[in-house]
Design a protein around this nucleic acid. Structure first.
Lengths: 381, 381
DNA sequence: TTGTACGCGTTATCAG
DNA sequence: CTGATAACGCGTACAA
């Protein structure tokens, strides 16, 4: 027994020198030879849950340890048809504003035993090239936080590539999706602001091709119409800091006055708007003007801003995306599933949220209840 | 000729149905069969720069197109020993420039024809597990923006895995590195502040295990000593917003007075410090207190802050890292290379930068020269 | 439980 | 320029 141990170690060391001189990689066959067993036995030792005797396991592991053997994932994936890699396609436009998003998605995907192959797109147009690479790499699935065309989605289906869209609704096609309800978020915000007596709104939206910003604007406009408010002044923007400043000026120019409230496509634009209002125009926020955004990015919580905004439950969304994709990979997808999450209203201090003056109607009891909870998760459908 | 074309397409379609029914993948062999050529010919058609007749190329490509053939990267990497993947190990410090860094690195790595396999670490301790995964995936190289232990670095060397450290100096070991000179940055900042007459400094540093914050502090302290200034009050922090606020209070408590200037480990802490100074303590910045940070993250440039800070040339650093690693992969590394970049001083408006009062000494000519160059590359060792 | 033999899909080598 | 054949390193029926 002790002699056998020495033999294994001895053989392994000898073999290791040979391999080094040949500049080869260490293979399972080498380990098998050093341990004096078959290659398939080695393979089984590295497969969790395989039937192996303890003696064999130890013998093999000793040899493997001496030889610094690590299984080759490429060879494995060739035969198992599983790469244990998930492609994450993400536009570095607005998405990368959330440091959390990437970290959280990566963490959750790892938790399912998979690894992230990252595709960051400078422009939305690059998605085609990214997908071409995706096919080569034999990833097990794709999470897309970027705008995929219907053709791209169809291609995923055709290639039987599990796909989960993140925060992008594709309403015409049945496709697995994890998303925040941005329409609802826009509606919630308007409801709260209208309840406090705001009537004249300005909206600094994102570009037309940004589905998130578009949905937020759409929800806001819907709700305004329902409440019988005058149509808002809408200006286009980029969802960046500068857009907030220029958008504010554009709205004031167009309206010929300062509106009651400005809703921005995201927090960064809202902060730009806020800074311009206070520092460039000398407006009192929220005294003369209310400003609100979306996302609850970290700076929105800083003392200088304390922004009124809506937070997406990013962790839950990331977990849902990873779990959905993992399911899809393991069990195949029967029908498209949509997991929609609600935003959480953050009161902040840049919007007046209680009615003032004689004209404002009293807040109905239901609305009071709805606005009472701070950081309250409204609903998960 | 026309008949041959039809034959290719016809065969391909027929074969495609067969493959679909067998639920196999489309292989180069299938394409070869459809096109009526050898499998090696197909392989060559997908290898850039291989010698192929135009007729053959077109014939193969037509068949490939009908069959939706895409080469399998796993099989390729098995034989070429190139996966075209680079592992990117990065600690999730929730730093605001993390998304920018990631996007830029990813972009530059893509520019070299490689793809990013992402490993985000929640804790520095997870680096061991991440590396274990790295070995399996047969990546061509590793970029580490995380703290690797000397043992980890040694393991990379042992396995002949090209490694580039990003923004982490490992002074004892010869290891390829791309970094900003944080010591120099700390020195530059103190030089500028001292030249404007600041004498009593507070430093809100990062945790001891953060090499970047440590080097910045070290550089700052060095320069203070050289200039004969009183030793600064140093408090530990986390490099987050909260640290800036608590750090400021701690410094004031310890000093029994407000110092002339506070240097923070990074911009986020500096912004926290700034907000606390202005909003909680009612201090005039830079009138009563100067505050400065590092990194020039986007919010540092916002109107509410306009922070005095130092910018790392992130794009150049990312490009250098990708190029260095790419070289290492292609040509092997002879000796460890270090590319060190200088920070760029951003004046901002949170630090008084001109001398006031009679006591301030005039700025020596040498100091003026040293701070004049913008984005200057100091040295490549 | 263990060993044998084969195949995963590609690139590289070498002869024609 | 083209085709046959041998690797690459592993997982897995199948037989023992």
């Amino acid at each position: 027994m002790s002699k056998s141990k020495q033999t294994v170690e001895h053989c392994a060391l000898q073999l290791k020198a040979l391999i080094a001189s040949e500049k080869r990689r260490v293979t399972s066959y080498d380990v098998a030879q050093a341990a004096g067993v078959s290659q398939s036995a080695v393979s089984r030792c590295f497969k969790p849950g395989a039937s192996i005797s303890p003696a064999m396991h130890e013998r093999v592991m000793r040899a493997a340890s001496v030889l610094d053997y690590i299984p080759n994932a490429a060879a494995r994936s060739l035969i198992t048809r599983r790469s244990n890699m998930v492609a994450l396609i993400i536009t570095n436009k607005a998405n990368l504003y959330y440091p959390e998003l990437l970290a959280e998605l990566s963490k959750q995907i790892n938790a399912h035993g998979k690894h992230v192959l990252l595709f960051t797109l400078a422009r939305e147009a690059d998605v085609g090239r990214a997908l071409a690479d995706v096919w080569q790499f034999q990833v097990d699935g794709v999470i897309a936080a970027a705008r995929l065309s219907p053709e791209h989605i169809a291609e995923c289906e055709r290639r039987r590539m599990p796909l989960v869209l993140f925060n992008r609704m594709q309403r015409d096609q049945p496709v697995n999706t994890v998303s925040c309800d941005h329409v609802e978020a826009g509606r919630m915000l308007v409801s709260r602001l209208a309840a406090a007596g705001h009537r004249h709104f300005g909206i600094i939206s994102g570009r037309e091709d940004s589905s998130v910003a578009t949905e937020r604007r759409q929800g806001a406009c819907e709700r305004m119409a329902e409440l019988g408010l005058p149509p808002p002044v809408i200006v286009a923007g980029n969802c960046d800091y500068q857009s907030g400043a220029t958008g504010l000026q554009a709205i004031i120019d167009q309206l010929g006055a300062v509106p009651d409230a400005i809703i921005c496509g995201n927090d960064v634009a809202a902060i730009g708007c806020l800074d311009a209002a206070r520092h460039a125009l000398g407006l009192d926020v929220p005294g003369q003007l209310s400003v609100a955004g979306f996302d609850a990015v970290e700076p929105s919580n800083w003392l200088s801003y304390n922004l009124t905004t809506l937070r997406q439950p990013m962790q839950k969304m990331a977990a849902a995306a990873a779990e959905l994709l993992s399911n899809l990979i393991d069990n195949g997808g029967s029908e498209a599933e949509r997991r929609v999450f609600s935003s959480q209203f953050i009161e902040g201090a840049t919007a007046r949220l209680t009615p003032t003056g004689p004209r404002a109607a009293p807040l109905p009891a239901a609305a009071v209840a709805a606005t009472a909870g701070i950081r309250q998760l409204v609903a998960i459908m």
